[in-house]
């Protein structure tokens, strides 16, 4: 008997018990993940806050979801998130590859809570453009494309050409996303060869 116990330290009944006790976890985990998504910021690659936005930690707290930034945006760049964004429902977001921000700065003029602060175009930091050199046709020496360079509102400053290849200058890039919108290369996962990383959003 003792030998048998050693050979099977886990009795079948106990194993079933443990297995059953893990079952709820299997159901709870996706639910938890969904619940976490309700408090996770929607800001990510090419999903940017309008110019002058306060840090993402206090954005949802300060914004009163009045939608005035959406109404004044002449390019319809700004969209409102709905309840699926959890506590971020009703906050403004810019999908850079769809319609980028053209830096008219009208939204910063109407925000009633200072969530979008009045700043100049040059001081805007919605994110930072990043060139994916594995995707970019110019960097891959497939063709000479300088679309991003041509459309950049801060040409020769934010995007410069290094042997005809685009290079982002961190200190000048405002993250408007015009380059990402214009980039002709779209990867299989929908990403452009140049995308905006919202790295300043948490500062």
């Amino acid at each position: 008997m003792a030998e048998q116990k050693n050979r099977f330290p886990l009795k079948r009944r106990e194993f079933v018990k443990i297995a059953v006790s893990f079952l709820p976890a299997a159901f709870l985990l996706p639910a938890t993940a969904r619940a976490m998504a309700l408090v996770r910021s929607p800001v990510r690659v090419n999903r940017l806050r309008p110019p002058g936005a306060v840090p993402e930690e206090i954005f949802a707290g300060k914004c009163i979801r009045c939608g005035r930034c959406v109404e004044v945006c002449p390019y319809r760049s700004i969209e409102l998130l709905d309840i699926r964004a959890g506590v971020f429902a009703g906050t403004p977001i810019i999908r850079a590859e769809e319609i980028p921000c053209y830096l008219c700065m009208k939204c910063t003029q109407v925000c009633p809570t200072g969530t979008l602060q009045k700043i100049s175009q040059e001081k805007t930091r919605m994110g930072l453009a990043v060139v994916n050199r594995h995707l970019c046709y110019t960097w891959q020496s497939m063709t000479i494309c300088r679309t991003c360079f041509d459309v950049c509102p801060f040409k020769e400053k934010a995007i410069t050409l290094d042997q005809l290849r685009p290079v982002i200058m961190e200190e000048y890039c405002v993250g408007c996303g015009i380059c990402s919108h214009a980039c002709p290369v779209t990867a299989a996962d929908g990403m452009k060869a140049v995308t905006i990383e919202p790295i300043y959003s948490w500062e």
Partner: peptide, 16 residues
């Protein structure tokens, strides 16, 4: 712009 959460008439705005 806006509605009754925040309502802006020109430079004058109201906040609920």
């Amino acid at each position: 712009q806006g509605w009754y959460q925040s309502f802006g008439v020109g430079k004058l705005w109201f906040v609920s």
